[in-house]
Design a protein around this nucleic acid. Structure first.
Length: 278
DNA sequence: ATAGGCCTGGAC
DNA sequence: GTCCAGGCCTAT
């Protein structure tokens, strides 16, 4: 469940479970996870206290008393599950952070693609990350010079975490739909107005998802997917113009969009009128 | 830019 | 069985 809003919800859970607690062990239960962390490094976490859980983009960092941090990336299907003292581990538990009070924080991940790493104290951690999608520093002014150098279509560029951190395949489609920008538009051809709309739309989509604060993947119910305007809705009617939502593949990933997203990205009517009467 | 790899489960 | 999946890396 891994875009910025879902990772933030997971980080909040990790905070509730682990902050201020002493780690007794980190168990790596799947070979894919064992491959990422040498056993000795995992063992060295015993005795550390989790002092904070930070999130940057889709990465979580559990800050430890030694100054080191445990970095966790959920990739496609990772999530946290709290484990009460004495309770069995949940399905697909791939790594488990055992705490001194008997509780634990389990990394559940059916596909086992999640990545764990221990970073030394003082390591430079966000060298490869642009501003968070929710950061006030993510602005049209930031985007202008960055997009000017990119000839690729805007949709795959939005997935580049160096451009903006935290957007994944779902919210990239959603934000472009909301901004009425054709996902195939070359990034460097977006007009200044389109860049402004894009930033606004990214913020909007993130804010709504953060408020929703829920797990998409876990919920499993198709009805939950209704909260997306276009993602996963190929063939359904666009809720804005009524035409059929389309699916294309860009950079190997599905993009959902509607023809009411214009090619030039600057001729569209402004986003749906504000509700607030003036 | 595209294909393949990492893994597994769910939909068909 | 086949195809697809919210991510991201490498090779071509």
């Amino acid at each position: 469940m891994p875009e910025l809003p879902e990772v933030e919800a997971a980080a909040a859970l990790a905070r509730r479970v682990a902050i201020g607690r002493v780690i007794t062990s980190l168990r790596l239960l799947h070979p894919a996870q064992r491959r990422q962390l040498p056993a000795g490094v995992a063992r060295s976490l015993a005795g550390e206290v989790v002092v904070a859980v930070e999130r940057r983009g889709k990465v979580q960092r559990l800050r430890l008393t030694s100054g080191r941090c445990l970095e966790v990336h959920f990739r496609m299907t990772g999530d946290w599950a709290p484990v009460a003292a004495g309770d069995p581990l949940p399905d697909h538990a791939r790594a488990v952070l055992h705490l001194q009070d008997g509780t634990a924080l389990a990394l559940t991940d059916p596909r086992a693609l999640s990545v764990l790493a221990v970073r030394p104290a003082g390591a430079r951690l966000d060298a490869d990350l642009g501003p968070d999608a929710t950061d006030p520093r993510f602005t049209a002014d930031w985007l202008a010079p960055v997009l000017a150098r990119r000839r690729a279509a805007i949709k795959p560029v939005l997935l580049d975490q160096r451009v903006v951190a935290g957007i994944g395949n779902i919210y990239a489609s959603e934000a472009l739909w909301h901004a009425r920008i054709d996902p195939r538009t070359s990034a460097h051809r977006l007009t200044a107005d389109a860049r402004v709309r894009l930033v606004r739309s990214v913020r909007h989509v993130m804010a709504v998802a953060l408020r929703h604060g829920e797990r998409y993947y876990d919920s499993g119910s198709p009805a939950d997917a209704r909260r997306f305007a276009v993602y996963g809705r190929e063939g359904e009617r666009c809720r804005r113009c009524g035409r059929a939502v389309r699916r294309i593949v860009q950079a190997g990933r599905s993009t959902y969009w509607c023809a009411c997203q214009t090619k030039r990205g600057d001729r569209a009517a402004p986003p749906p009128p504000a509700r607030r009467p003036r």
